[in-house]
Simulated scan of single mutants.
Amino acid sequence: MMARWGCDRCGFVAWTPDRASMREVTGSHLLAHHSEAVSRSDFRTTWDCPYCATAKTAYDTDDAVEEFKTHLHEHVADRIEEGVHVGERVSWDGTVQVAAPVDSADADALRAHFHDGGDLVIAVTASPERTVRLLHDELEAWPRRTVVVSTEAYPFEKAPDLDFSEIPIEVVELDPRLGPDELGETVSRIIDANRVAGDVISLEVSVFHEIVRSFDLQTACDFVRMLSARLDDDGGVLQLYVDADADPNVSTVLNFLDDEIDLKVAAEDGRFVRRG
């Protein structure tokens, strides 16, 4: 769970690991809105708060700006919510685009965050070992049921410290010749076979780049739309892990899916920010 703050002047929303980490986020964001409130003359820097009558003058500009950011933070500190989850932003029923390199620490932070809130976790990934290791290392407890789906074989011999007989997990290896339609059907069958009433579903798709590279635009779009529609029946969050900035073809497909995306989140240094 995290702390969350949303700007009432724009659509900016941020999640941080704790309340203390939010201070820099709120101060910097509000300073960007009120940069004109900082001025320098007669060798001194002055800031004049737009929310109250407070004004300060100092010789050191950096110190003055930091003081102003702290002051701005105090004006919104009581609006910081604690103990929240990013999934609550879409009521645990929607599609989230995660803007981060797929195999990065930032993407892993969001994976762990989402899967920690799920009862049934399904991860469609090209790196099954990385996914299992992340869940083992980062989650306090395993979800009720986890299913890892990949065209890559899982190297069980590389994980001697994991007793798979004691972990509620299944690793499904797919034929790499299967297309998105067969992949989507597999995921749907996994939901049917593993979901119990009241489950929160966390569905990770980390192979969207591969789908876009291998299939046409319509096929890639239909894959996401049908997965989203499948989750509409049972509820859950579909997460698309994509680095659109690094792949113009992915960016093009996402433009066609804009109406399907309920939330866009960027991850950086353990902080999550609503994008777009």
Rank of each mutant, 00 (worst) to 15 (best):
L257Q: 09
S228M: 03
D222S: 10
S202L: 02
R195C: 04
A267I: 01
S202H: 03
P248A: 12
L257I: 08
N255P: 00
R230S: 12
L203Q: 07
L203N: 03
L263D: 05
R189C: 05
A193N: 10
S202I: 01
V265E: 09
D269M: 06
Y241H: 15
V207T: 14
G236R: 02
D259W: 02
G235V: 10
R213Y: 07
G198L: 07
F256G: 01
V237C: 11
Y241C: 05
L217V: 13
R230W: 00
V200R: 15
D234F: 14
S251K: 11
F223Y: 15
Q218M: 09
S214M: 03
D258H: 11
D216F: 08
V196M: 04
G198D: 02
C221I: 14
V212H: 03
V265H: 01
V250S: 14
G235D: 08
I190D: 07
S228R: 15
D181H: 10
L263N: 04
L227K: 07
V242E: 13
G179M: 10
S202G: 12
D234T: 15
G236T: 12
D192W: 03
I191S: 02
L203V: 06
D216K: 12
D243H: 11
L257A: 07
V273S: 12
I211K: 05
D199K: 02
L238D: 00
N194S: 13
V196F: 00
L263F: 12
E268R: 15
A193H: 04
A197D: 13
V205M: 03
V242Q: 02
D245Q: 13
S251H: 09
F272A: 06
F256S: 13
Q239V: 09
L263A: 05
E185R: 14
N255E: 14
L238G: 07
R274E: 15
V200Y: 01
E204G: 11
T186K: 10
V212G: 04
P180M: 05
A244H: 07
A244V: 08
D258G: 05
V205I: 10
P180T: 07
L217Q: 11
G198K: 08
Q218S: 13
F256Y: 15
V207S: 08
